[in-house]
Simulated scan of single mutants.
Amino acid sequence: MKKILLTGGKGFFSKRLASFYHDDYEWVITDKEELDITDRQSVFAFLEELRPDYVIHAAAIAVTDFCNEHPEVAHRINVQGAVNVAEAAKEVSAKMIFLSTEQVFNGNREPGPYREDDLAQPDTVYGQNKLEAEEHLKQIIDELWIIRFTWMFGFPERQQSMVNNLFWDTIVSVLNDEPISASKREFRGMTYVYDMISQFEKVFTLPYGTYHFGSENTMSRYEAVEYLLETMGLGDRAASLLIEDKEKYQELPRDIRLDASKAKKFGVSFLSTQQAMRLAIEDYGLVINKNKAGGKHGITH
């Protein structure tokens, strides 16, 4: 059984990934409490003792505002930490997967979707960190996959971490009768976390290199919320809850969608965002029925 070291193991994606493939690999899961990736000596000692077959490096500070406000801390973790892990992985002949992000295109002015060989021009510290780390790692270790993710969505789960995402945030707003502000000039890939996870094992079969992973999406953020409400049987709530944000991205639309056709050529294929939203509702048995009792808004599990 192959041994996998997973850094950043308490994250939204990471915990679900390890749980999904629990019986298929020998997992060693670390977070900052178990392994300080900024301590090069500790990282080398840890990997020398563990000697994993694969290292999936997910550890990072991904909060945009925090990174912008604390650039030195962000660089130490997001860049130097990744370098430490890559150098140690090479030392023990482990293959490495580095999880990157659509945010490397956050400052691009031309519209997406973006291919792997398109010039990335990030304008946030987090995006800059990830792009810099990518470049360093390519010089350090040959047996490397760089996987750039789209935005992911999912539900809260017992003993799993949670992050803000359009899908769950919309449901919470409906339950609380809170307005939902969304722009018609923002475009992002939005991928169901379990669609991403179910495809992730195929990374091990890909030629080394950089790949974009995630769903194709033609909807703006506003249209995605509207579609979700309609699909859940709550289209009548859109008129009262959904508000167009006319301030954000008026000067320049935000479009950081990824073109995942390279991965598709190797058999890694994702649902569209619309298909993924439907699957998520089915997976969790979320029923919207206005004709039956089920709480104030007819939402039942």
Rank of each mutant, 00 (worst) to 15 (best):
Q41H: 06
Q41K: 08
E34D: 14
F20M: 14
A59V: 02
F13C: 10
E34H: 11
R40S: 09
L35Q: 04
I56A: 00
F12P: 01
K15H: 06
Y21D: 14
H22L: 15
K32S: 14
L50C: 00
R40M: 02
I29R: 04
V28G: 03
T7N: 08
S42M: 04
E49P: 01
G11H: 11
G9K: 04
V28L: 07
E33I: 12
F12Y: 15
F12D: 11
R40N: 08
I29H: 03
D36G: 01
F13L: 15
G11L: 10
L17W: 02
S42A: 15
S14L: 07
F46D: 05
F20L: 14
K15V: 09
Y25T: 00
K32I: 14
F13A: 11
D53E: 09
F20Q: 14
R40V: 02
L6D: 01
Q41S: 10
D24S: 15
T30C: 12
G8K: 01
E48F: 10
E48Y: 11
F20N: 12
L35S: 07
V55K: 02
V55W: 06
K32R: 15
S19G: 14
L50F: 00
K15D: 10
D39M: 05
G8V: 01
D53I: 06
W27F: 11
F44N: 08
Q41A: 08
K32V: 14
F12T: 11
G9Y: 07
I37F: 09
A59R: 00
E48V: 03
A59N: 04
F13R: 10
G9D: 07
F13I: 14
K15W: 04
V28E: 09
D24Y: 12
E49D: 13
H57D: 05
R40K: 15
L47V: 11
V55T: 05
R16N: 05
F20S: 12
L47M: 14
R16E: 02
L17H: 03
Y21M: 13
T7E: 06
E33N: 15
Y21W: 15
D31P: 07
L47G: 07
L47I: 11
Y25I: 04
A45K: 11
A58P: 00
A58E: 04
Q41D: 09
V28Q: 08
E48D: 14
F12S: 12
R40C: 08
I37Y: 09
K10T: 14
D31M: 10
E26S: 09
V55Y: 02
P52F: 04
H57Q: 02
E49M: 10
R40H: 10
L17T: 07
R40L: 04
H57K: 04
E33S: 13
E49W: 08
S14K: 00
K32W: 13
G8A: 11
E33R: 15
G9L: 04
D24G: 13
R40F: 04
Q41R: 06
V55S: 01
W27N: 03
I37C: 08
S14D: 07
S42V: 02
S42Q: 06
H57S: 02
Y21Q: 14
W27V: 03
F13E: 07
Y21L: 15
F46E: 09
D39I: 03
V55P: 02
R51I: 01
I29D: 01
K32T: 12
E33G: 13
Q41T: 06
L35A: 08
F20W: 15
T30H: 03
L47Y: 12
L17V: 08
S19C: 13
